[in-house]
């Protein structure tokens, strides 16, 4: 996937027991972001695979002042890419949880 300069990873081991995940997002390459953002700070949040959307979380991060509106698409894409990967892992290897 195209690099957005942002990194999203699991903040806790995925035990596949429910649809809620703990994710952590931070800026890996500040040059790739357009607006102001907080460097060296990781944002941890919960993401429900059944009810949440990456766009909605990105919007709330912009509203909370973590990122500029011009970067909300990159934030949403980073979250979407990671969530897609986690869903595939859950489908492929239930034992992987």
């Amino acid at each position: 996937a195209e690099d957005t300069g942002l990194r999203v990873e699991l903040a806790e081991e995925d035990d596949c027991s429910n649809s809620s995940l703990a994710l952590r997002l931070w800026v890996e390459d500040p040059k790739k972001l357009k607006g102001k953002h907080k460097d060296n700070e990781a944002i941890e949040f919960s993401f429900n695979l059944e009810t949440d959307t990456p766009e909605e979380v990105a919007y709330e991060m912009v509203k909370s002042g973590f990122f500029h509106e011009s970067d909300s698409k990159a934030v949403a894409k980073s979250i979407r890419d990671r969530v897609t990967l986690i869903k595939k892992t859950r489908e492929k290897k239930p034992a992987g949880c």
């Binding site: 990194r7 941890e44 949040f45 979380v57 509203k63 909370s64 973590f66």
Partner: peptide
């Protein structure tokens, strides 16, 4: 810890903390 900040937005909780040094070196 004093380094962690909790922000609420539309019912969602964001926990802000420094990126671990080890992760910064990776990038």
């Amino acid at each position: 810890s004093s380094l962690t900040q909790v922000v609420h937005s539309a019912g969602r909780r964001f926990i802000v903390s420094p990126v671990p040094e080890s992760r910064l070196r990776e990038s």
